[in-house]
Design a protein around this nucleic acid. Structure first.
Lengths: 180, 180, 180, 180
DNA sequence: GATGAATGAGTATTCATTCAT
DNA sequence: AATGAATGAATACTCATTCAT
């Protein structure tokens, strides 16, 4: 059993559920069955642990975009992307909760600044690539709107409206973007 | 000079800039030139102060929606709404920062639960009213999408992309929703 | 009972006996019957408390030098000064222990830098004044030697030689400096 | 490259510069490119390492006193001793810094108690031997004064006065003690 | 001899809250 | 309404030491 991995796993869960600032390292230690010193040893500080976790979620996002799309039309690619995104949104709320959380909180935002910039420019680039293939006009602005809309859906679904009509919105989004 | 009002003003600014959890009441006291006891006296607790502030921002949102629209077409109303929203987004970032912040943070989310629900259902209702007047099909789902898109734009503009093309996106949004 | 004063008193004693770095604030709190927060409240930090204490000991030194010497010859002044110094050295070891301690420890030395410089230049000035009155040649260098010798005596008496012949050395010193 | 020796060298430097209590073994390990376990292995504990270092500095002091003085008069011996001492004081401040440090700090004082006593009685004996040869009256007390004065000079030169007139004081000391 | 993961007690500091005045 | 001394629980972090490899 790798204790380092265990810390990351537990901390990810707790940071997502309770928020970064509201999660004491002592709680992480307790739940992960690990001493306080070990976090210092492996991650140097709480912020260091946060960065490690954020990096891991970025890798996950990168992987979602790396699926082999050789024999798909751009529209099919977009549909698949939306499909996997909406699936994950429904199945793994905490993943999105965590990411929203740390990007909005001024404190964590600062700690993760470079990593957030790196990730978000990657997402923008990938989106624009698809839009360019589909030959959408004004692809940069449209990519920004596309990303914003999906982020807004996450935000409203996760944090604001209890009866958010996720499924129907998914259909509308696919209709709007992929079936042009 | 009303000290109660001064506390609210300073606290709003600090909570917005630094996040709720990362703002010590002692800092609020110092900046507002006020003793610690006075916050307890007026607001009972830090959470109480937060609720008071959130209520005030809700009132502001309500006011934006209350502008007299008697002699406007629904489309004109929508355009004006979008206009004032994008203006405020550019001029008063902290206002949106604060609201995003407290809605995404699990802790504050819990404290404000009832107020958030009240506000968001108000916003949904108002949006749907306009969409119904415009006679948009599937108005509930479309209202959700509309709100989500605007929230997503705030999120991306404020917290993620440094060179977010706000102006162009505003034009696209108006084109999309109001000029049908 | 003034708790602020109580903290200073207890801390002075403990810092002297155990050294600054080896004295936990929790120990000070326990002995002074005071909560941990109160030290923060009054002194901001452990270093702040140290500076306060060092300032107080400086005041004591200043007072020793302020005794009315109107109707004394310079030699009589010097004898009286030596007398009170040697008395205090024998009766209040901790006082000297503390001062040696914080001036030699790199950490505390840094924290107290400005205060140490201020104090030591005061002592040098006062010594030189007397030496000038006695009309001693090369008074600046001789003042330095005088101060160094007394500091060295403290150091050896307090910290090194268990059977240090303090009384006889006092006589020799008086013979050497005051009876020229 | 002998790692044991390397640890001693680095630790001596760091203890001197930063003080014993303020120097973490992890820092020593890092600077010496050595694992934590190795210090335990070689020196058992941090205190063990300190004792080893103190012993080494004692040996250095012994060597200074062992220089062949067969064909020198006692006065010449004393001058040479003072000369080498003042040279070292100017060239190797850290050496004296370290020794002052550990003798004044209650914690380290306790750990090194036996070694300090041994060393200081050696120094006293050696000094008294020379003074006896010169036929100085009251040689024990005078030896104590001599040692104290030199210690005081170190203390004031290293830790208190930035513009301490070391060279002139050296001349005065030689005049006073060696040219009688 | 040498490593480094792991421990756990200990440290200064923070902070919302209480309460006498 | 207003102050600020006082509390005490909580927090991130430090660090010497142990031990399996």
């Amino acid at each position: 059993m790798d204790k380092r991995e265990q810390i990351i796993e537990i901390a990810t869960k707790l940071f997502s559920e309770r928020g970064y600032e509201n999660t004491a390292l002592s709680l992480v230690c307790e739940k992960a069955n690990v001493s306080k010193g070990l976090i210092s040893h492996h991650f140097k500080s709480k912020d260091g642990l946060l960065r490690e976790i954020f990096l891991k979620t970025t890798q996950l996002i990168v992987e979602i975009n790396r699926v082999d799309k050789e024999n798909q039309t751009p529209s099919e690619q977009l549909i698949e992307l939306l499909d996997s995104l909406f699936s994950k949104l429904a199945s793994d709320k905490l993943f999105f909760q965590f990411n929203l959380n740390v990007m909005v909180q001024p404190n964590t935002r600062k700690v993760l600044d470079d990593l957030i910039k790196e990730r978000s420019s990657f997402i923008l680039k990938k989106t624009k690539e698809i839009f360019d293939k589909i030959d959408i006009e004004n692809s940069l602005v449209m990519s920004h709107m596309f990303i914003a809309e999906l982020d807004g859906i996450s935000l409203n679904y996760l944090g604001i409206y209890e009866d958010f009509p996720l499924e129907q919105i998914k259909k509308e989004i696919i209709k709007k973007y992929a079936l042009q």
